[in-house]
């Protein structure tokens, strides 16, 4: 069994990673909820998994490939019909500074 220190969930950092603006006033609440969920999840730590290979997929088989053929024709107009903001075929976002 592994001991994990969950005592300091940094909600600001997690929200930033997930690009979710969580209001300051909700931080305590959200942290509490997350702590409860993590505590529920931690029940699995008691399972002995020594020598067990992770299973990433129930199919547990190999990947099928596609031939190198151009099969998609692109209608930019269709794809951009519902786009929030475009100009001259570009999607626009507020100016990014590197």
């Amino acid at each position: 069994m592994t001991d994990i220190d969950n005592s300091n969930i940094n909600i600001t950092h997690l929200a930033r990673l997930g690009r979710l603006a969580i209001a300051e006033s909700n931080h305590a609440n959200t942290t509490q909820e997350l702590e409860n969920i993590i505590a529920m999840i931690d029940a699995m730590q008691s399972v002995n998994t020594d020598g067990i290979e992770p299973l990433s997929h129930p199919l547990d088989s190999e990947q099928l490939l596609r031939a190198d053929v151009v099969s998609e024709s692109v209608s930019r107009e269709t794809f951009q019909k519902d786009a929030p903001r475009t100009e001259d075929g570009y999607y626009l976002v507020p100016r990014v500074v590197d």
Binding site: T49, P54, L55, D60
Partner: peptide, 10 residues
Amino acid sequence: KAQKIRRLIA
């Protein structure tokens, strides 16, 4: 860890 338990469950 969860993926390992997934195998045990399977």
